[in-house]
Each structure stands twice: as C-alpha cells, then as structure tokens.
C-alpha cells in the first residue's frame, strides 16, 4: 500500500496495537489544598489577595502571575456571583443527545479576579442568561470530598430579578 493508492480504512493495512500505559495522580497544590479543604469543611469559597496589585483571586492561588508575588493572605469570598458566559451542550463526546442539555457557565464573583467554571441548575426548564445572579449550592457535608464537585451547581440567586 503506497501513497498513491487510496485506502479509506487503515484497518486494511497490517497493524499493531499499542498504548501509552500511564495514569495520573494530581495534587491541588499549596493554595488549591486550602481552597478545597475550606470548601469541604466550611462550605465557603476561599480566595487569596495580592498585596501588590490588590486583586483577590478566586479560587485561591499560590502566586500572582503578573506581580509574581507569593500570596499568603487567604480570604473568604461571597459564594454568589454573576454568569459571565454560558453554554448548553446538546450532545456528548460520542454525539449522543443530552436531554436536558448540560448547562455550563463561567461565573465571576464581585470584587474578585478569576472565577469558576461550573454547572447551572435549578427548577426544571430554568433558563439562564449572561449577567444572571447565581448562588452556590453545595452537596451535603457528609458527601463532600474536597473537590470541585462538592459544589452541586449554581442556581438563580434569591431575590434576583428573574
């Protein structure tokens, strides 16, 4: 089989199977560890404040990538925020329909730099728009493991306009 011969299926060529046999074990890091332990145990979002540019990053991070300062001031930030952008996935990776659609948003928090990507949820059929105020819904304390899924989703904030 040469380059000038067309083959629509590479399975017709003699083939040899293989893979790269590795898995991974990650750490959340110095700041990430504090962020997730605080989320699990106290049910709040932790940020870190940069004394140089005076920004507060959420989730907490160990350094400011602009000022290149080590961040050591950890502060809780409000757990309600604003939908900065969102999307609704209608099919999964294999092309299977997702019903209801999977709604994912980038949520920012007032006075903070950064933000969280997370699911949006609420009553069935609830629709969301950019600019909506949303609040964090946590899993029960006993079900929290110290990961991003300790947050069930964000839902419309109480008393918000919609």
């Amino acid at each position: 089989m040469g380059l000038i011969q067309k083959s629509s299926s590479n399975q017709e060529l003699r083939h040899y199977r293989g893979n790269i046999p590795v898995g991974n074990l990650y750490t959340a890091g110095i700041a990430g560890d504090r962020f997730f332990v605080d989320l699990r145990d106290k049910g709040r979002l932790l940020g870190t404040r940069c004394p140089s540019c005076e920004r507060t990053f959420v989730p907490a991070r160990h350094f400011c990538e602009e000022c290149f300062t080590r961040l050591e001031e950890y502060v809780p930030v409000p757990s309600s925020g604003t939908v900065h952008s969102l999307t609704a996935a209608h099919v999964d990776l294999d092309g299977k329909p997702l019903d209801p659609p999977h709604v994912l948003a980038f949520i920012t928090f007032e006075g903070c730099a950064g933000g969280l990507v997370h699911r949006l949820g609420g009553a069935p059929g609830q629709s969301f728009r950019i600019g909506d105020r949303v609040e964090m819904v946590l899993k029960d304390r006993k079900k929290r493991t110290g990961g991003i899924n300790d947050i069930e989703h964000f839902r419309p904030a109480k008393g918000s306009r919609r």
């Binding site: 990650y26 750490t27 890091g29 110095i30 700041a31 560890d33 160990h62 350094f63 290149f68 080590r70």
Partner: peptide, 13 residues
Amino acid sequence: KETPKELSFEATR
C-alpha cells in the same frame, strides 16, 4: 504537594 506551576514559581521567584 506543590502543583507543577507552584514548583516553577518557587524556583523562578
């Protein structure tokens, strides 16, 4: 415990 980014930061700083 540090993430790869945090390791890089400490050496660079």
